[in-house]
Simulated assay, not measured.
Amino acid sequence: MTTGDHHTAPITQAVVLAGGQGSRLRPYTDDRPKPMVEIPGTGIPIIGHQLDWLAEEGVTDVVISCGHLADVLQDWLESTDLPLRATTVVETEPLGRGGGLKYAAASLPRADEPWYATNGDIWTRFSLRAMSAFHAERGASATLALARPNMPWGAVETNEFGHVLDFIEAPPSPYLINAGVYVFGPEFTALLPDRGDHERTTFPQLARTRRLAGFRLPQGSYWRAIDTAKDLTEAARELAG
Rank of each mutant, 00 (worst) to 15 (best):
H198L: 13
P186S: 14
G214N: 01
R208S: 13
A170D: 08
R200Y: 03
I168T: 13
R200S: 03
E160C: 01
R200H: 10
N159V: 07
G196S: 02
G220S: 10
T228Q: 06
L212Y: 02
E187G: 03
P204A: 07
P174K: 09
E160H: 11
V156Y: 10
Q205D: 12
T228A: 08
R200W: 05
F203R: 03
F161Q: 10
I226E: 02
A155C: 08
A207T: 12
T202V: 09
R195A: 07
Y222C: 00
L217V: 12
L217Q: 10
L192H: 06
E160D: 12
H163S: 08
T209P: 01
D197I: 04
N159P: 05
A213T: 12
E157G: 00
Y182F: 15
Y222F: 15
M151E: 13
R208G: 01
W223F: 12
E169D: 15
G185F: 02
G214H: 00
L165W: 01
F161K: 10
M151W: 05
V164K: 12
P186E: 06
A229T: 14
F203H: 06
F215R: 03
A155K: 08
R216Q: 14
P218C: 12
D194E: 15
R208P: 01
G214L: 01
P152M: 05
T158W: 04
P218R: 14
W223T: 08
E199W: 09
A229L: 07
F167D: 04
W223Y: 11
D166A: 15
R200K: 11
H163A: 09
P174V: 11
W153G: 09
D194M: 02
A155H: 11
S221P: 09
L176D: 09
I168A: 06
R211Q: 15
P218S: 13
T189N: 01
F184Y: 15
E157Q: 15
R224G: 03
V156G: 08
R208T: 14
L192R: 09
R224V: 04
T201D: 10
F161A: 12
A190M: 00
N178G: 05
E169I: 11
T189V: 12
W223A: 03
F161H: 10
F203T: 00
N178D: 15
H198D: 15
Q219I: 11
T209Q: 11
P152G: 06
Q205L: 03
T209I: 14
D194L: 12
R216N: 07
E199L: 10
R211N: 06
Y222R: 14
T202I: 01
L217P: 12
I168R: 15
A155W: 13
T228K: 09
E187N: 04
D194R: 11
Q219N: 11
G220V: 09
F188L: 14
L176Q: 13
F203E: 03
S173V: 08
A213Q: 03
P204E: 10
N178P: 04
F188Q: 06
